[in-house]
Each structure stands twice: as C-alpha cells, then as structure tokens.
C-alpha cells in the first residue's frame, strides 16, 4: 500500500507539474502596477519568488539555476531541503493555497471538509436506509407489480445525471413550490445557535440531500436486488426453505448474508465517498464543499491544493480497498486469509 502511495504521489506530482504554469510569475504579475516604471525590479521579484518556491536555487557561482523536477518532488515530500529547510508533507506541510489568500492548504480544507461530510453522511445513511430494504423487497417479490414499478423508478433515477435531477428539483421544489431555498447553506443573516442552527442547516441541506439520495437510489437498489436475486436461488436457500425455516430467516440470515459480498464493495465505497465532494452538486447549490474547492483549485492552478486533495483521495481509496478486504472476511469466513 505504501509503495502504491509513493508511486501515485510521484505520478501526480509529475503530471500536475507538466501543466504550463509558473506560480512565481503569477505572484509577480500581481505587483506589476507597482513596478510599472521599474521592469528590472519586477524581474528581480520574479526571481525572488522562484527561489522562495524552490523552483530555482543559486549555484556556487551565485547564479540562479532551475531545480530539477525530481528534486522538487523530494522537496515537496520533505525528503530534500528547499531553501535549506526540510519542510514538506512528511513534516506536515501540505503547501500553500495561493487561490485562498496564501493560507496553508489544510487550514483551507477544514471547513469544506466538514460541510461535505455533513451532507454526505446524511445522504449515505438515508440512501442505504432506503435502498437496501427496497432492493431486498424487490428481489423477494421479483416480477410483482410493485417490483416492476420500483424498477421503472430506479432505472429513471439511474439514467438521469445528478445535475439534471438537481436542476429539475430546484425548479420544482424551490422555484415553483417554494418549499426549499434555491441555494446556500443557512438563512442569510441568521445567527442561530444549537438545535436551531442545526435545523436551519438541515433545511438548507434538504434539497441537495434529496437530490443526492434520489440520484443514488436507482443504482444501489438495483444492485442489492440483483445480488439478492442471485442469492435467493442458491442451494443453501432452497435447502433452508425445504427444512421449513421461516421465510424471514431465510431472507435475512441465509440469502442476505450471501448477497452481502458484492454489496459490501459498494457500501464501503459510499462511506469512503463521504469525504469526496460533488463538483456538480456543490456548484449548483452554492455549497462550500470539497468538490467545489477541487474544481476551483484546478481552474486556478492551485497545485498544492490539488495535489493534497488528490493524495487524500488516493489514500482514502487505498484505505477503502483494505477495509473492503477485511469486510469480505467478516461477511464470509471462506474469504478470510489463512494464517
């Protein structure tokens, strides 16, 4: 896992540094007006910034020289000194976000992460609470009218992209019916505290939450249904029924346990995704979340921020795989690793 992480970090760093962009130039350009009658001064400032950012360093003759990409990568990791100091990821420095007023990346991410998690946790719990029983119900009543109706509903939800659902729901529930606010995260100008604040936040999050849940229903319900349908045809289920075991026990103890393996992958994937923002949704609803930060950082070439986020997602992904493997073992003793 560590090796994969190191390789990923190197690849990410190299790829993002291929983008034709020079942060030192961008910073110096901001002060162009002050140097309008002193172009040499602006060039000097540019060089100063390049040195400060570790893009260049002075050689033994005092001449500025470009620092190679690999050394910059090591400097970013904290394995090589930048301006005489080891100050990289290993030392807890994930860089500076230039788009967000030159504040440390981790400081900038704290609040969007909270918002994203707040939204996603509710969404995931709500979606799972609906889809798993619904999927099981459909599998058990496969071919019934209710199953067919749910199939229509889920396939529509599965087929329509998130942002279309969002636009439709805004139009219907916010613009036309006025049940929910069109965007935002709290009542403008409110200074609620405690439960009142929480409820206000929930009210503003309701529509995005409904959209997210609605958008997730189709896929998960169908997935659970398919998995359950297969499990219900297994020999052990047939045997259990033949032995006269109660149907409830057959479904939830025998079939559901067997149907869990494919579902676990998805469910854990969902829980992992509570850290990931939705670019579309956050922009449509004006939410200050991780997806919005990522897209804004990419647009603004805020590379430290982008790299930090990508690395975070890579780590979460790797961790997710590990958890999935462990969960398989818990759900199905046959998959446990032999000692």
């Amino acid at each position: 896992m560590l090796l994969v992480f190191v390789i990923l970090s190197m690849l990410l760093y190299l790829i993002y540094n291929l983008i034709p962009f020079n942060r030192a130039n961008a910073i110096a350009e901001q002060y162009k007006a002050a140097y309008k009658n002193n172009p040499e001064g602006l060039e000097k400032l540019k060089l100063e910034k390049e040195i400060e950012l570790g893009l260049k360093k002075y050689d033994e003759n005092g001449e500025p020289q470009k620092v190679g990409i690999f050394m910059r990568y090591l400097g970013w990791l904290g394995l090589a000194p930048v301006n005489g100091q080891y100050n990289g990821i290993l030392q807890g420095n994930f860089g500076i976000s230039y788009q967000y007023n030159e504040r440390p990346v981790l400081e900038v991410l704290a609040e969007p992460m909270q918002n994203t998690m707040f939204l996603n946790i509710f969404s995931v719990i709500l979606a799972l609470a609906v889809t798993i029983p619904l999927g099981i119900f459909c599998a058990v009543h496969r071919g019934s009218k209710r199953d067919s109706a749910i199939q229509v509903f889920t396939i529509v939800g599965y087929s329509i992209p998130f942002f279309i659902i969002a636009i439709l729901f805004i139009w219907l529930f916010a613009s036309t019916l006025g049940w929910f606010p069109v965007s935002g995260m709290k009542t403008p100008g409110s200074d609620y505290t405690g439960m009142q604040k929480f409820l206000d936040q929930l009210y503003y999050m309701a529509l995005p939450l409904i959209v997210m849940t609605f958008g997730s229903l189709g896929g998960m319900t169908r997935y659970v249904r398919a998995s359950m349908t297969e499990a219900l045809t297994m020999d052990c289920v047939r045997t259990a029924r033949a032995k006269g075991v109660k149907e409830k026990v057959v479904v939830y103890s025998h079939a559901w346990r067997n149907a869990l393996i494919p579902v676990i992958t998805l469910v854990i994937g969902w829980f992992i995704s509570i850290f990931a923002g939705s670019i579309m949704l956050e922009n449509i609803f004006g939410l200050n979340g991780m997806g919005k930060i990522l897209i804004q950082s990419l647009t603004a070439n805020d590379l430290d921020m982008v790299l930090c986020l990508e690395l975070f997602y890579a780590s979460i992904g790797l961790l997710g795989n590990l958890i999935v493997d462990i969960a398989y073992g818990i759900a199905d003793p046959r998959i446990r690793v032999n000692k």
Partner: peptide, 17 residues
C-alpha cells in the same frame, strides 16, 4: 452572501436575498 449565478433570480424572487 453567496448566490449561484444560475439560480440568483430565484433567490431574489424567494426573498433569500
């Protein structure tokens, strides 16, 4: 406060801003 460009007209209509 922040409004979304695409829905700001609805925001003012609904009295949010």
């Amino acid at each position: 406060t922040k409004v979304v460009q695409e829905t700001q007209m609805d925001a003012i209509k609904n009295g949010q801003v």
